[in-house]
Every structure is written in structure tokens, then in C-alpha cells.
Amino acid sequence: MFTPEGPGLRELAVQALSSVERGYDLLAPKFDHTPFRTPDAVLDAVGRALSSRGPFGHGLDLCCGTGAGMGVLRAVCRESVTGVDISAGMLAVGRERPDSGGPRAAWVRGDALALPFGPVFDLVVSFGAFGHFLPRELPALFAQVHAVLRPGGRFAFPLPAPAPPGSRRYWATLGFDAAMRVRNAVWRPPFVMYYRPFRLGLVRPELERAGFGVELSALPEFGRLPDGSPRCRLVVAARRP
């Protein structure tokens, strides 16, 4: 997909007709060569922003995939880093990465809606995974994150601004989401992945209802839109004592 090392059209078709878990198991060996991997520019910007708030003790990468975000945790967490994901295939690739983290890192298979941890983390991050959760699932998701954080612990993730209406990105995300809705209406098992519903106006109230205090800051590396608003924000939600 877009590179010689990425999956071909047939592979993508098989993955798209699978469940989320099975689809990512199949995609895992080539995932880092697709546009679905979080760009290094985003990871680096978040890492810089978090470094001024740290250091932290124990960190969790929620829906870690092959572990691109684990490097952010290793840079800002002194004690340990843990990645959790539902796909055994993605975790297997992550464990084999040269920068997998060694003895400081744990790779755990688990469901983000039923996390297998107690309140032991000081920082939870997540990159590019929220499209796999329907809006009605966000209260349960945020409650799980709240439950695994220590009091005062933080949940941080980048949140790009919505694509301007009429832009190329606007039509691309609209078309992708429409195609996924049609696919899920006629094919089972469903593959939940939608780009457009996860927006600040929905996310912030749900975080606050889950017991978080929410702080927003611009990621200056990505500039601003013509109206002056940031192209990408860092959302930092602190668990209230």
C-alpha cells in the first residue's frame, strides 16, 4: 500500500473483510509500511510536549499496535512501559522491534474495554486507535483508562482538527467512513474504524464525566488553521483525586 513493502490490494481486501482483531493480525508484518502507522512527526511532537510535564513512573500505551508509541513512553517514563493491544500479531511484531524496550517493557494482549490492570500507571498514551470505538463506547473506554491510572495520573493523546469542508482530507475521510458503514451493514464480522466521529466536542465532555480534568495545548509543530485554531492539539486528561 503506497510502498513496495506495504500490503497489496488483495491483502487489504482480505483484511478489510475480517474482524478488527483478525484484520490486524494479518496486517501486522507490513503495518509499519502503511499510512495507518502514526507518523514520527506526531510521536516526536507529543514526546516533546510530555517531557515538560514529566518525568513519569509507569506508562501504558493503549492499543499499542506494533509499538510506535512505546518510544514516547520510554523517553518520559523512568520505571516501566507497557503496551496493550487486542491483536496478538501486532504485539508479536512489536516485541521483535530493535527498540522494543528490553526488560523495562511489557507487551500484553488485552481488550481496551476490559483492561487487565489495576491503578498502577502514571501516564497512559494512545495514538491513532480511537476510530475503532463507536461514540457509545467512549464512556466505557474512558472509565477503563481512569481505572488503571493512579490519582493524578494523566491520559494524553494527539487530536487533529477536523478537515476543512471541501478539502482533500475532508472528502477522503468522508468517503472512507461511508465505505466502512456500507461494509458493516452488509458483512459480518464488523470492522469498526471511522475517522470522523472522534472530535473534541464529543471527547471532552465524556472525559470529564469519567472523572478527568482536561487540559488542551497546541502542538506548535503543525501550525494553525486560517481561523487561528491549532491544526493539532494535545489532550491531557488528569485523573482527579
Rank of each mutant, 00 (worst) to 15 (best):
P4C: 02
E5L: 15
G6N: 05
P7T: 11
V14K: 10
L17Y: 12
L17T: 09
S18R: 14
L26A: 07
A28F: 03
P29W: 00
H33Y: 10
P35S: 08
R37E: 03
P39N: 11
V42L: 06
L43E: 00
G47E: 10
S51P: 10
S51C: 12
C64L: 07
G65H: 10
A68F: 15
M70D: 05
R74P: 05
A75W: 13
T82M: 11
T82H: 08
G83R: 04
G83S: 12
S87G: 07
S87N: 05
L91F: 13
R95P: 00
P98E: 12
P98R: 09
G101H: 02
G102Q: 11
R109C: 11
G110V: 04
L115K: 02
P119N: 15
V124G: 00
S126F: 01
A129G: 04
A129P: 03
G131R: 03
L134W: 12
P135I: 11
P135N: 13
L138W: 15
L141A: 04
V145M: 02
H146T: 02
G153A: 14
P162L: 08
R168Y: 14
A172S: 14
A179S: 13
A179F: 11
M180F: 06
V182R: 02
R183A: 13
P189M: 07
P190Y: 08
F191W: 06
V192H: 03
Y194Q: 12
R199N: 08
L200V: 14
G201R: 14
V203Y: 02
R204C: 07
P205C: 12
R209G: 12
R209L: 13
L216Y: 10
L216S: 08
E221L: 03
F222S: 00
G228K: 02
P230I: 03
L234Y: 02
R240F: 05
